[in-house]
Computed example of a mutant assay.
Amino acid sequence: MNEILDVAALVLILMGALLCLTAAIGVLRFRDVPSRLHAATKPQVLGLMLICLAIALSLRSWPVVAFLVPIVLIQLATAPLSAHMVGRQAYRNGTIDEGGLHVDELAESKRTPPAAGG
Rank of each mutant, 00 (worst) to 15 (best):
M1F: 06
M1D: 07
E3Q: 12
L5A: 14
D6C: 03
A8T: 14
A8E: 11
A9H: 08
A9S: 15
L10T: 11
V11R: 03
V11G: 00
L12D: 05
L12N: 08
L12E: 08
L14A: 14
M15K: 02
G16S: 02
G16R: 03
A17Q: 04
A17T: 14
L21C: 12
L21V: 14
A23I: 01
V27A: 08
L28E: 01
R29M: 07
R29H: 04
R29N: 01
F30G: 00
F30I: 00
R31W: 05
R31I: 07
D32A: 04
D32Q: 04
V33G: 01
P34K: 09
S35F: 04
H38F: 10
A39Y: 06
A40T: 05
K42Q: 04
P43Q: 05
P43F: 04
Q44R: 06
Q44Y: 03
Q44F: 06
Q44P: 02
V45W: 00
G47L: 06
G47Q: 03
L48V: 13
I51F: 04
I51S: 04
L53G: 15
L59I: 12
R60Q: 15
V64C: 00
V64E: 01
V65A: 09
A66H: 05
A66V: 08
A66E: 08
F67L: 14
F67R: 14
L68K: 01
L68A: 03
V72T: 05
I74V: 15
L76P: 03
L76N: 05
A77C: 10
T78P: 09
T78G: 08
A79M: 15
P80E: 08
P80Y: 09
P80F: 09
L81D: 03
A83K: 11
A83R: 10
A83C: 10
H84R: 13
V86E: 02
V86S: 04
G87S: 14
R88V: 08
R88C: 06
A90M: 06
A90F: 06
Y91T: 01
Y91C: 00
Y91K: 01
R92G: 02
N93F: 10
N93G: 08
G94W: 11
G94D: 11
D97T: 13
D97G: 13
G99R: 12
H102I: 13
V103M: 14
V103F: 15
D104C: 13
D104N: 15
E105G: 12
A107M: 07
A107S: 14
A107F: 08
E108A: 14
K110V: 02
K110W: 01
T112F: 07
P113G: 14
P113E: 13
P113M: 08
P113D: 15
P114G: 08
A115D: 10
A115W: 13
G117K: 11
